[in-house]
Simulated scan of single mutants.
Amino acid sequence: MNSPVLAAHALTKTYGSTRALAGVDLAISRGESVAIMGASGSGKTTLLHVLAGIITPDTGSVTFQPAAGGAMELTGMSESARSRLRRERLGFVFQQGLLIPELTAVENVALASMINGVKRADAVQHAASWLGALGLAGMEDRRIGELSGGQAQRVAIARAQATGAELVFADEPTGALDSQTSREVMDALLWSTTGQGRTLVVVTHDPEVAARCSRTIAVRDGLVVPTAVDA
């Protein structure tokens, strides 16, 4: 059996008197799409941020196993090493996209590759191909404010894939969208990740989004709890 692409053991995280994570164990297989669900304050976003190396847990470990090379223990890395890992090997899609409004769609996507040392012309060409694949051909030179919410999220998805990220984290990627646009964005997100043999971890409050994923993880009071399917 292949080792998981991501494995967490005994994760805890406390903010003041609030225990956001209370001892989480989790393994995610390569090529899975995993939805993390839970009520507001359950710890699901904290879990996503710890798994992605954005924040460090108080205790416990997170191990990332890339397709090539040795395993990486995120919680033992320096902040600069985790930042490099996120920049080069991981992709991110957030509810508001976090795109740069002063840049065009293609520039937003190309920037991710350029930061990693790719020449501008090559980065722009690669970015344009991703935008075209996600249904945004002809919109490359539009600024973010000239796009609909769903189009902007597809730009964010293209940006997450521009560096060839093996593992993509999405935090409420459809939270600000209507139901039809939400389905279209999930189509794009799944096609660009698991459809290409990559792995997706998505935090969502929407059961329809979770149902599109291959597995759902429920979080309550900082712990992973059995779902109805597991029970």
Rank of each mutant, 00 (worst) to 15 (best):
residue 23 G to S: 03
residue 124 V to M: 09
residue 99 L to F: 03
residue 180 Q to N: 11
residue 76 G to Q: 13
residue 99 L to G: 08
residue 150 G to Q: 04
residue 157 I to W: 04
residue 214 S to R: 10
residue 205 H to A: 11
residue 162 A to Y: 09
residue 224 V to N: 15
residue 98 L to C: 13
residue 217 I to Q: 08
residue 218 A to K: 12
residue 135 G to A: 04
residue 195 G to Y: 02
residue 94 F to I: 00
residue 21 L to T: 09
residue 104 T to R: 09
residue 47 L to W: 15
residue 85 L to F: 08
residue 55 I to P: 01
residue 119 K to F: 01
residue 64 F to N: 07
residue 112 A to Y: 12
residue 27 A to R: 11
residue 85 L to V: 12
residue 147 L to V: 10
residue 176 A to Y: 03
residue 174 T to W: 00
residue 194 T to A: 03
residue 26 L to S: 08
residue 186 M to W: 05
residue 227 T to Y: 15
residue 154 R to S: 00
residue 141 D to T: 09
residue 164 G to E: 15
residue 35 A to H: 09
residue 200 L to M: 01
residue 32 E to K: 01
residue 62 V to R: 11
residue 221 D to C: 02
residue 30 R to Y: 02
residue 229 V to K: 14
residue 222 G to P: 06
residue 185 V to F: 00
residue 178 D to N: 10
residue 13 K to H: 14
residue 205 H to Y: 07
residue 141 D to A: 05
residue 106 V to N: 15
residue 24 V to S: 08
residue 128 A to G: 15
residue 45 T to N: 10
residue 20 A to I: 05
residue 151 Q to V: 01
residue 162 A to F: 09
residue 194 T to I: 12
residue 62 V to D: 11
residue 128 A to D: 15
residue 110 A to G: 14
residue 143 R to D: 03
residue 157 I to R: 01
residue 79 E to P: 11
residue 212 R to Y: 03
residue 19 R to M: 05
residue 123 A to L: 10
residue 19 R to T: 05
residue 187 D to S: 04
residue 99 L to Y: 10
residue 52 A to V: 09
residue 37 M to C: 09
residue 204 T to P: 00
residue 168 V to A: 03
residue 145 G to P: 14
residue 32 E to T: 07
residue 9 H to T: 12
residue 10 A to M: 11
residue 161 Q to G: 08
residue 72 M to P: 01
residue 87 R to V: 07
residue 174 T to I: 06
residue 161 Q to C: 14
residue 169 F to P: 00
residue 54 I to Y: 04
residue 2 N to W: 13
residue 165 A to L: 08
residue 219 V to A: 09
residue 148 S to I: 11
residue 118 V to Q: 12
residue 228 A to W: 14
residue 115 I to Q: 10
residue 50 V to R: 09
residue 142 R to F: 07
residue 10 A to H: 15
residue 30 R to E: 02
residue 138 G to T: 09
residue 11 L to E: 13
